[in-house]
């Protein structure tokens, strides 16, 4: 493992996480309660308290490139029990937003692909469409056979309608997504211009 260069922590990253999550990460004293209760801990590369520590140290790349930020399911156990009243789940959510914007996670990240596929069906129809979502996800994640055994019984019981329910105001919902994408693009553009200026990294 490369040593962390303490003097070169990304303070802008810390500020951004705190601003977006409205939490004070300095309050974390590393008791590990978040890790202790986390149901998804088995799937993490960094534990929840390690992520909090890495944020405190401004280790943007290590945090945003972690597997853990994608695996958190926001079950709120950490938030509920944090002795310092930090909304840890919200902090991790914010890191996931930043990881996504930074283009991390990759095309084989099932959690990311699932979220994208889900929102795609909402963008199209105004509501989510489970069958459409499954199909889209399988195609994108290149996992055509996962959960296939569930399909017959679900279809038989009429729990997976073939056609999506489309709402009348779907163009309005699509508008929300459209404006959101435009904002993201603008932000990305501003960032790439920023990147040309010299800035502290955590390599």
């Amino acid at each position: 493992m490369e040593p962390i260069q303490l003097g070169r922590g990304d303070t802008e990253f810390i500020r951004k996480v705190e601003e977006e999550s409205r939490q004070v990460v300095k309050k974390c004293y590393q008791c590990g309660n978040c890790t202790a209760g986390c149901p998804m801990s088995f799937s993490y590369d960094y534990t929840a308290n390690q992520l909090m520590r890495l944020i405190q140290l401004g280790q943007r790349e290590r945090v945003l490139k972690s597997r853990a930020v994608w695996m958190c399911v926001t079950c709120e156990t950490c938030t509920t029990r944090c002795p310092n009243e930090i909304d840890v789940a919200r902090v991790l959510d914010v890191c996931r937003h930043m990881a996504r914007k930074a283009g991390y996670g990759g095309v084989f990240n099932n959690m990311r692909v699932f979220a994208d596929s889900f929102l795609q069906t909402v963008r199209w129809n105004g509501k989510s469409h489970e069958l459409g979502l499954m199909a889209l996800f399988k195609m994108r994640a290149m996992k055509p056979f996962s959960d296939l055994s569930l399909a017959p019984s679900m279809l038989l019981k009429g729990k997976l309608p073939y056609l999506p329910h489309r709402i009348k105001g779907r163009s309005e919902v699509a508008g929300i997504f459209k404006r959101f994408s435009e904002q993201q693009l603008k932000e990305l553009h501003a960032q790439t211009t920023d990147d040309k200026k010299p800035a502290g990294g955590d390599k």
Binding site: G32, C34, T35, A36, G37, T47, N49, T77
Partner: peptide, 19 residues
């Protein structure tokens, strides 16, 4: 070194989940 998140009674044992 870590806090305990929860104690879950399982049969006549107590499952202690910590870090």
């Amino acid at each position: 070194r870590g806090r305990v998140s929860t104690i879950v009674p399982l049969g006549d044992k107590l499952l202690v989940r910590g870090a």
